[in-house]
Simulated assay, not measured.
Amino acid sequence: MSYRRLSGWEPAEFTDYEYDEDGRLIRSVTTREAEWDEQERAWMLALAEHESRQCPLCGRPLSVCTDPASEGRWTTTPPTRCYATTSVMKARKPYDEKSDEPRALLFSATAG
């Protein structure tokens, strides 16, 4: 879906009608405005280029997080627990031994 479609844009449609000598409709051709214009394609290409330069692990630019000169400069914070995931992992335990493919089971957590 293009950005402009996501923003509420709808393509314009134009219909040309062709009639015979007696005024009967013999053909109609509807043309729809293209969703992906040059601007939309340029934005998507720029996004793809940007994403290709991001680390899939930390999301920082690859040039920053893979620079050997930065080794030892990074500090980390203590972990934070996701209680929704904790709940799901606890719910999975009984199924892990019983199911043929326990990783294929879908669980969800809701706050309540």
Rank of each mutant, 00 (worst) to 15 (best):
Y19S: 03
P68E: 14
P56D: 14
Y19Q: 02
S52Q: 10
G23S: 11
S108T: 10
Y95V: 01
W43Y: 11
T85N: 05
P102N: 05
G72N: 09
L45W: 01
T86S: 08
Q39E: 13
P56F: 09
L105F: 10
R81W: 06
E49K: 08
T66N: 15
E40G: 03
S87E: 04
G23H: 07
R103N: 13
Y95F: 15
Y83P: 01
W74Y: 14
W43K: 12
L57R: 08
A111M: 12
R60A: 08
V64I: 14
R24K: 13
E18H: 11
W36F: 09
A46Q: 15
V29H: 01
E49I: 01
Q39S: 10
T75N: 04
E40T: 05
D100C: 04
T66R: 15
A84M: 03
T66V: 02
E35Y: 03
E40D: 05
P61W: 12
F107V: 00
T66F: 09
L47R: 13
C65W: 04
G72M: 08
E40C: 06
R27M: 07
T80Q: 14
C58W: 07
T75S: 14
V64E: 13
R103H: 14
M44A: 10
T30P: 05
T80V: 12
T86D: 13
P94S: 09
P79F: 04
D37G: 13
T76I: 12
S99P: 01
K98Q: 15
Y95S: 05
